[in-house]
Design a protein around this nucleic acid. Structure first.
Length: 595
RNA sequence: GGCCUCGUAGCUCAGUGGAUAGAGCAGCAGCCUUCUAAGCUGCGGGUCAUAGGUUCGAAUCCUAUCGGGGUCACCA
């Protein structure tokens, strides 16, 4: 890549002209702004410290050196402290001819380095997935692909929270008010059925509380002594005691939920390499805690509970084991993290979890370090912000959640209505049309969510998310489909997509802008992997598609003016299509061959 | 209250040490005999929350203040 060539030569120039070793961070290269002539700009202000002349003079000296010693440099100009370098046309042409057909352009080959474990989704089995889970799943899945493209060996894992008081609530409500209802008998998706009983429990529980409060108790007291919650707790104890009937019901109801989740994951287009169940891992951390007590880094109180004092790190005391010996969230995360470390010896352990758990992960790392686990530093919490609705925050208890299945269906319906209105599907058969609605609808949803910086809270406006114009997934998909259409047409007419580096007499500004944008892609992938941010890819994909649209409208691609410039533009189009497809693949978004 | 985080156009978001801060949506005005108008072109819209500081240069880094969100459980 030209940036590396320039960096090396600039280092050399600084050494020779000023006798100074240039630190790489001093060499700031950036794309030249469109209003100036040139392709790549070197900011020379940092050099003036040792050049001891004006920025302009420094830039000129370096520019002269590059021009004389680097074949790729065609020309340069200096504006203030900016050295604008024009890269020779030959470089761009050979870059194009060498890569335009490369399916995997921008992706690195799998390295033999240590694996990266990425955990995402992590649902509870008492209710269906909602919009918050969608953001989680999309981020996790997209990041796994970005890391893969960056040459990492990635293992995608899901940790299903299948035990605890929440599922007991659904079980109890189903036993009491369910009348043997099943997904088959009700026609409800399994996760929705179980979710329905979770809601019923909550409603009945609230009524009981209200009644107890009416008899003179405080709300807190009432919440603790309501018969329903006591029964649910008893059910949990029976579960922990391996009571056969309880376990059996638990298996049946969780089975329904898994069937439901599998469908949602499939529709959303995400998957895992491995699924862990908390019911099988929740005891794992206890031994570690015991080990910590032995080592004296954790302390056991007289009631039997185990704590760690983190006041030295500026945090408070943290519970690691309950007085009754049962494990808490932290206990089990210590266990699963250690298990994964032992199993894979990973380079990095990534957790895609909401930002409300930032403190938890901070503590997790410190607690592991106290145990002597130096690898705790390899834990990375991909903390993402909440998804808010125009009405405010989503609250499952108040019914203001956006259900994942409903939302996707709505996207499909909208894309169908839109496609029909625009007359897009006249030549499509039913199967193809249906696939198109799904591709477009999902593309809109995924792009809408992934284009926002993960760490920020985001507003989900249903009306805007189904918009298919402007900075949206469908716009990018459309650009791809249109390029494919052009290429099909060209093949029909018999145009060749082959050219040599001397085939184009000149490189028009629109062509060059597009080529430069494509040229950036590998660096963008590397950056997204390093910063763990799919948003970088999403925003790049939009810029690339916009650039192509300008190119497409400014130039006539299939017009018999000059065969070699035809070939050039077709090659550029094909290259763009490949890169768009690759960028969208990183986001988990499919591309339609026509739309 | 302590700690974390965010604040950029009417709205949703990019930009996170470099040149005159950018898109999309919404509004207005144009462009379909051509490969596809889910598109393109133009216009208007900004005290980058506020006040200091660091430097050749700050939306970006530091400090304080204001405002939103999160978190500080023998919940997960």
């Amino acid at each position: 890549m030209i940036e590396q060539i320039l960096t090396d030569k600039i280092t050399e120039a600084v050494k020779i002209i000023y006798g100074h070793d240039a630190v790489p961070s001093l060499i700031q290269l950036q794309n030249t702004r469109k209003e100036f002539e040139g392709d790549i700009t070197l900011v020379v202000f940092p050099f003036t410290k040792f050049s001891r002349t004006s920025p302009e003079a420094t830039a000129t000296e370096i520019g002269d050196y590059l021009l004389a010693n680097l074949a790729e440099v065609e020309n340069y100009n200096v504006i203030k402290g900016f050295l604008n370098i024009s890269v020779h046309k030959e470089y761009w042409l050979s870059f194009l001819s060498g890569n335009y057909h490369a399916e995997k352009f921008g992706f690195r080959n799998l390295s033999d380095g240590l694996p990266i474990i990425i955990e995402y989704s992590s649902p509870n089995t008492n209710k269906p997935l909602h919009l918050g889970h969608i953001r989680n799943n999309l981020l996790g899945y997209s990041l796994s692909r970005i890391l893969l493209a960056a040459g990492k060996n990635v293992v995608k894992v899901n940790l299903v929270n299948d035990r605890g008081i929440h599922i007991c609530k659904s079980m109890l409500a189903w036993q009491r008010w369910g009348n043997g209802e099943t997904p088959e008998s009700s026609g409800l998706k399994g996760d929705h059925l179980v979710g329905k009983y979770y809601v019923i429990f909550d409603k009945q529980y609230k009524e009981e509380i209200a009644e107890i409060v009416a008899h003179g108790s405080s709300p807190e007291e009432a919440a603790k002594k309501a018969p329903l919650i006591i029964e649910a707790q008893q059910l949990l104890q029976k579960w922990e005691a391996h009571d056969e009937a309880t376990i059996s019901l638990w298996k049946i109801m969780n089975g329904w939920v898994y069937d439901g989740f599998a469908k949602t994951y499939q529709t959303l287009g995400i998957e895992f390499d491995k699924t862990y169940y908390e019911s099988q891992t929740y005891l794992l951390g206890k031994e570690l805690v015991e080990e910590g007590v032995q080592k004296g880094v954790y302390t056991r109180r007289t009631d039997g509970s185990v704590w760690i004092d983190l006041s030295a790190e500026g945090m408070d005391e943290k519970l690691l084991l309950r007085s009754d010996g049962t494990s808490v969230y932290m206990t089990q995360d210590l266990g699963t993290a250690t298990q994964r470390y032992n199993e894979y010896n990973p380079e990095q352990l990534i957790y895609v979890v909401g930002n409300e758990q930032e403190y938890h992960f901070k503590v997790l790392k410190v607690v592991l370090k106290h145990l002597g686990c130096a690898w705790a530093d390899s834990i990375y919490h991909l903390s993402y912000g909440m998804v808010e609705l125009p009405e405010g925050k989503m609250k499952s208890r108040e019914g203001t959640v956006v259900d994942a299945d409903d939302l996707m269906q709505e996207m499909f319906d909208t894309s169908e209505a839109m496609a029909r209105e625009l007359g897009k599907i006249e030549s499509f058969d039913d199967e193809e049309a249906k696939n198109l609605y799904r591709t477009i609808g999902l593309g809109a949803l995924k792009y809408f969510i992934l284009k926002v910086d993960p760490k920020k809270n985001m507003l989900f406006n249903p009306a805007e998310s189904v918009d298919f114009n402007g900075n949206t997934g469908p716009f990018i998909q459309y650009t791809y489909a249109r390029i494919k259409s052009v290429l099909r047409k060209a093949a029909d007419v018999g145009y060749e997509v082959s050219f040599s580096t001397s085939s184009s007499a000149q490189l028009l500004p629109q062509e060059k802008e597009l080529l430069k944008k494509i040229h950036d892609f590998p660096a963008i992938v590397a950056q997204a992997a390093e910063l763990h941010s799919p948003a970088i890819i999403a925003n790049y994909a939009f810029e690339l598609a916009s650039e192509y649209n300008r190119f497409y409208h400014d130039l006539t691609i299939l017009k018999e003016e000059n065969l070699s410039s035809q070939a050039f533009r077709l090659g550029l189009s094909q290259f763009t299509a490949n890169v768009i497809a690759n960028a969208l693949w990183l986001l988990g978004i499919d591309v339609p061959e026509r739309m």
